[in-house]
Amino acid sequence: MDFLNALVALLNYVIIPATSYGSQLALGALGVTLIYGILRFSNFAHGDTMAFGTTITILFTWWFQSLGVSLGPLPTALLALPFGILATAALLLFTDRAVYRFYRRKKAAPVILVIVSMGVMFIMNGVTRFIIGVRDQNFADGRRFIINALEFRKMTGLSEGLALRTSSVITIVTAIIVVVLLFWYLNHTRTGKSMRAFSDNEDLALLSGINPERVVAVTWLIVAALATIAGVLYGLDKSFSPFTYFQLLLPIFASAVVGGLGNPLGAIAGGFVVAFSEVGFTYAWRKVLAYILPASLMPHGLVQLLSTEYKFAVSFAILVIVLLFRPTGLFKGKSV
């Protein structure tokens, strides 16, 4: 029984939160890694792209709510999501046209593009703050829990409760659907294959008649969708504020780099490595240990390896360690 309780506590406080956080990071990191693979630079504006997509989604959510439109138990934001994606896609295509294309044509050094993306980051960050303000926004509605802790305890008779939040389930299910669609697209469609070819060997792709502008445009469209979905899922799970989303850039970069920049599978693996280490290092294990260790062996304190404030530090420690031993990430990434 104690073993089961420990397992439930582990699920409740570590596995489920880390899996949903990992899914959000993976979707974010996929966007970063696609841009790196196709456009060959690290996009510092990615966190703010997520913030912009989420902002538009929130505005539509509010509008739908004021009209009385809802999805019942599901959050209204899901209904607003496509509009957020469309707006973000328009923004990214415009940015590419107005900013990035010039440097692409000039074949500018990747580091210049990184600095350019810093400028874009400033603008997007300010625009988002201008539209929605700097405060925290909570836009999740619908049913909060699929199973709450009390019901679970009644159902199973265990002393430890399992709370399954709607947002966690939506996150994980959506992430699976998105990833399957993305890989199907990359591996089985003409345009998807041409994206991989372009990422693999740009010169040869040109010699094969692949149109670089089309590949780039499709990439931005996919990135818009990935970023907005990742942002909205994170916001539903926690809450939205422009600064938090800017900061999300850190674990997202860590995920993409740990997995190997430019490698989509790596981005997913990286997302989960980072999420599980963040949660694992900052969770107070006392609760779980209390069920399985005899009282005499029970250590003092919370059995927390690092305080929660160090979660970003954990993702970067992982990043640095991985880079030291495998300079291009767990899966083979590229470096330009």
């Binding site: 790196y36 630079f41 690290s42 990747p110 580091v111 990184v114 850190l250 970069f253 860590a254 780099v257 920049l261 970003f312 530090a313 993702s315 970067f316 420690a317 990043l319 640095v320 880079l323 300079p327 470096s335 330009v336």
Partner: peptide, 17 residues
């Protein structure tokens, strides 16, 4: 020892740490 983008991201992380 890391190259371009990787160095940037590593320093960003170390600054935050």
């Amino acid at each position: 020892g890391l190259r371009s983008d990787y160095l940037a991201i590593a320093t960003l992380g170390i600054g935050q740490i």
